[in-house]
Write a protein that binds this DNA or RNA. Structure first.
Length: 416
DNA sequence: CCTCCACCGGAACGTGAGGAGT
DNA sequence: ACTCCTCACGTTCCGGTGGAGG
C-alpha cells in the first residue's frame, strides 16, 4: 500500500527538484552581469571613477520606475569599484547603502550611515536608536570620516519617500548631507540618490537639487524582449534543466511583467512563485498555468498582507467603506463614510477620530491601492472625495472577517 | 455670473512612548 | 528622578475651491 507522501518525497530523492538555486530570483540578488543596463553602468562607473584616485565624485540622481534595475546597478557598480580598489592596492572608498523607505527619518539615516562605516560614539559604543540630538550624530559621522581621509559613497535608495513624509524633513536630511562636504577636512561624501518617482525633483529644495542633481541617470522600463532576456539568464541559474515546461512560460512571465510597466522584480517574483507552486503540487515542470495561478496568488497575498497589517483605525475606516459598498452604493463620500466609521468605532470601543484625521486615513488607503478616491465637486452640495473599493468586496470581506471584533460588528449590522 | 456647500488639505501644536545622559 | 532628545499619531484652526443651482 502506498503511503501519502511517498510520491512527493520520492521526487525530491530522485533529484527532480524544480529549483537549482532560488536565491537567483530574489530581488537582492546581484548577478554576474546586468544585461541591458550597460549605458547606466558606464555612466555611473565613469562618474564614480575619480574616487579611485581619491578625488570626490559628483553626486548622482537615478530615476526610473520600480524594477528597472536602479538598485542592483548601484550595488553592482559600487561592488566593482571597491573590489577594483582592493585589487590595485588603492585606498578603497567607503560605501553605505540606506533604504530611505524603511529607514525614514533624519536621525535614522544618520545612524545607518554610522553603523555601516563603523562610526561609533566617543566611548566606542554603537550609536543608539534614538535619544540623542541629531546634531550629535552628525558630529560622530563627521569625526569618523575626518579621522581618516576617505571618500564615502552613500546610496540613498528610494529617496523620494523621505520627501513624502514630512515636508521639509526630507530636504533637511539631504541638505545636511550635501552640506557636510563643506565641513569635512579630509574626506568627501558623494551621494547616489535613487528615486522611482519621476516628479521627485520638483519636491526637492532648490539648494539641495543644485548639488544633489549634478548628474542624472535615467532607467527606462524593460520591454518584453529585455525582460525575456533577463528571465532567461536567471532561469539558467535558478531552475534545473528542463524544469521549465516550454518557451511559452518565459514569454508569458515577460508579457505579464511588461504590462506592469516592465518591472523586472515582479517578473522574477512571478517566476519564483510559479516554480514554488509547481514544486508544491509535485509537478515536474513549470507550466503557463502555474504562472497564471502565481499571478493570482501574488495579488491576493499582497492585498491580504496590507489589510492585515493595517492599524485598527485604518481597518475601521476601510470597513466603513466596505459596509457602504456592500449596500450597493456606487459612490461613497467622505461624510457618509465618516458617519459609518463613527458607529463602527463606537461598537469597537476605540477612539472616534476627527473627520480631518479620517480624511487622511482615507488618503492612505488610497495610496495603498485598497480604495480609489478622487476629489469631486457636487456643486451646491459641496466638495468631497468620491471613494470606491479598489479590490473585490468578497476579498476584503474575507480578510476583515478574520478580525473577530470586526466580524462581530458585521453580524450586528446585518441584523439591522 | 455669483453664491455657497461640504469638504479638502496645509500648518501649528499637543501628547505620550521610547531612549540617553546626568 | 529629572531633563532632553525624536517621532508617530492626533487635534484644532482655517483658508481654499469646483461647480450646481439660483
Amino acid at each position: 500500500m502506498e503511503k501519502p507522501l511517498d510520491k512527493l518525497f520520492d521526487k525530491f530523492l530522485q533529484g527532480q527538484a524544480i529549483f537549482r538555486d532560488r536565491t537567483a530570483l530574489r530581488p537582492t540578488y546581484v548577478p554576474e552581469s546586468l544585461p541591458y543596463r550597460d549605458d547606466q553602468m558606464n555612466r555611473i562607473g565613469s562618474i564614480l571613477g575619480p574616487a579611485l584616485r581619491g578625488a570626490p565624485p559628483s553626486n548622482i540622481l537615478c530615476y526610473g520606475k520600480t524594477g528597472t534595475g536602479k538598485t542592483v546597478v548601484a550595488r553592482y557598480v559600487l561592488d566593482m569599484l571597491v573590489s577594483k580598489a582592493k585589487d590595485s592596492g588603492v585606498n578603497a572608498p567607503l560605501t553605505a547603502f540606506v533604504n530611505c523607505r524603511i529607514v525614514g527619518t533624519n536621525y535614522r539615516v544618520l545612524k545607518r550611515l554610522c553603523d555601516q562605516i563603523d562610526a561609533t560614539m566617543p566611548d566606542g559604543s554603537e550609536v543608539p536608536f534614538t535619544g540623542l540630538p541629531t546634531d550629535e550624530i552628525r558630529e560622530v559621522l563627521k569625526n569618523k570620516l575626518d579621522s581618516n581621509p576617505s571618500i564615502l559613497t552613500v546610496v540613498l535608495d528610494e529617496v523620494d519617500s523621505l520627501l513624502k513624509r514630512d515636508a521639509g524633513q526630507g530636504n533637511d536630511i539631504l541638505y545636511g548631507l550635501t552640506r557636510m562636504n563643506g565641513e569635512l577636512e579630509n574626506s568627501r561624501i558623494s551621494i547616489i540618490g535613487i528615486s522611482n518617482d519621476l516628479t521627485f525633483k520638483e519636491m526637492l529644495d532648490p539648494r539641495v537639487l543644485s548639488t544633489l542633481g549634478e548628474e542624472e541617470v535615467i532607467f527606462s522600463p524593460y520591454n518584453a524582449v529585455e525582460l525575456k532576456g533577463i528571465l532567461e539568464q536567471r532561469v539558467a541559474l535558478a531552475f534545473n534543466t528542463d524544469a521549465i515546461g516550454d518557451e511559452g512560460v518565459i514569454n508569458l512571465v515577460g508579457a505579464l511583467a511588461a504590462q506592469e510597466h516592465g518591472d523586472a522584480r515582479r517578473a522574477l517574483d512571478l517566476l519564483r512563485t510559479a516554480g514554488e507552486l509547481a514544486e508544491r503540487k509535485g509537478d515536474e515542470k513549470v507550466t503557463q498555468n502555474h504562472v497564471r495561478e502565481a499571478q493570482k496568488v501574488i495579488e491576493r497575498d499582497t492585498i491580504t498582507e496590507t489589510v492585515k497589517t493595517l492599524p485598527m483605525q485604518s481597518k475601521a475606516v476601510l470597513f466603513a467603506v466596505y459596509v457602504l459598498a456592500s449596500k450597493g452604493q456606487q459612490n461613497i463620500f467622505t461624510g457618509e463614510c465618516y458617519n459609518v466609521y463613527s458607529d463602527i468605532a463606537k461598537s469597537l470601543s476605540i477612539d472616534t477620530l476627527t473627520q480631518r484625521r479620517v480624511s487622511d486615513l482615507i488618503s492612505e488607503l488610497d495610496m495603498l491601492g485598497l480604495i480609489n478616491t478622487s476629489v469631486i465637486s457636487k456643486g451646491r452640495y459641496g466638495r468631497t472625495k468620491r471613494i470606491k473599493l479598489a479590490v473585490s468586496k468578497k476579498q476584503i470581506g474575507v480578510i476583515l472577517d478574520d478580525d473577530v471584533r470586526l466580524s462581530n460588528i458585521a453580524r450586528d449590522l446585518e441584523s439591522d
